[in-house]
């Protein structure tokens, strides 16, 4: 069995590793120091179980879990935390298994025995109740069984088609695009402080807006950094765009 230990503190990882080795020497152990590394490891190694710390720099455990759940066959997750009021409340209300550090060997053994997979509903509720992350730091897409992470701060805009949501983002100074599963509506709610809805089908990063132009046919078009064509602003959202441009 392959187990991934995720914790930002080397001592905490060390201890978990030695406890796991005592429980069963056949465990194959891999480690990660934060949420981003955890996802990379899951992509590369496909572990069966992930022991996930909550409070980590870069990307915390709850967000990493959220991205992992996007996989068709996600690993089972066991959370661990030293003390985190909000997370503990969330776990208890969702009856999700979690370990308190310092972790007892017997308790770890029990958690490994009956570790079950989280369902998406539970996870959503955990995210809602955890007040420490108001929104994700990354958006994820599943590509050929592995997770592609897109940092929110690299994103230019989200565009909706009939069925799909596309995200346009910078990668090595070039704007590329990927299809994601989130809906424009949920993204708008989650990132309301950094993104602005300009049309039924477009959500734009506020600081990417360059200028508002009036076309000859009366349509309002927004020039966006990194895009060589303008995006149409619907009449309903025009006043919000104007307000933003005025305040900037």
């Amino acid at each position: 069995m392959k187990i991934l230990i995720v914790d930002d503190e080397p001592l905490a990882r060390e201890r978990l590793a030695s406890l796991l080795k005592e429980i069963d020497t056949r465990y194959y152990l891999i480690e990660a120091a934060n949420g981003l590394e955890a996802i990379e490891q899951v992509n590369n190694e496909e572990p069966d179980i992930v022991l996930m710390d909550i409070r980590m720099p870069g990307m915390n455990g709850l967000e990493a879990t959220q991205h992992l759940m996007g996989l068709d066959n996600p690993p089972a997750i066991i959370f661990s935390t030293a003390y985190d009021e909000y997370a503990l409340q969330a776990f208890e209300s969702q009856a999700v298994d979690y370990l308190l550090k310092p972790i007892r060997k017997e308790r770890l053994e029990k958690a490994l025995d009956n570790c079950s997979k989280l369902n998406k509903l539970q996870l959503e509720q955990l995210g809602l109740q955890n007040q420490e992350i108001p929104h994700r730091s990354h958006i994820s897409a599943q590509i050929r069984g592995s997770i592609l992470l897109i940092a929110v701060k690299e994103i230019v805009c989200f565009l909706a088609d009939h069925k799909y949501t596309t995200v346009k983002y910078y990668q090595d100074n070039v704007v590329i695009e990927t299809v994601i599963e989130d809906t424009l509506k949920s993204l708008e709610e989650e990132f309301s402080d950094t993104f602005l809805r300009i049309h039924r089908n477009a959500l734009i990063r506020k600081n990417m807006i360059e200028a508002l132009e009036k076309q000859a046919d009366g349509r309002a078009v927004l020039k966006i950094k990194g895009l060589d064509y303008g995006l149409e602003v619907s009449r309903r959202h025009l006043s919000n765009v104007r307000k933003l441009l005025k305040s900037a």
């Binding site: 503190e9 001592l11 905490a12 060390e14 201890r15 030695s18 030293a82 003390y83 985190d84 308190l100 550090k101 310092p102």
Partner: peptide
């Protein structure tokens, strides 16, 4: 801060072995 107390305990638990 309880956070500090429990994290320190965890460090000690780990260091006791190594």
């Amino acid at each position: 801060r309880p956070h500090f107390l429990f994290n320190s305990m965890n460090s000690i638990a780990s260091l006791t072995r190594t």
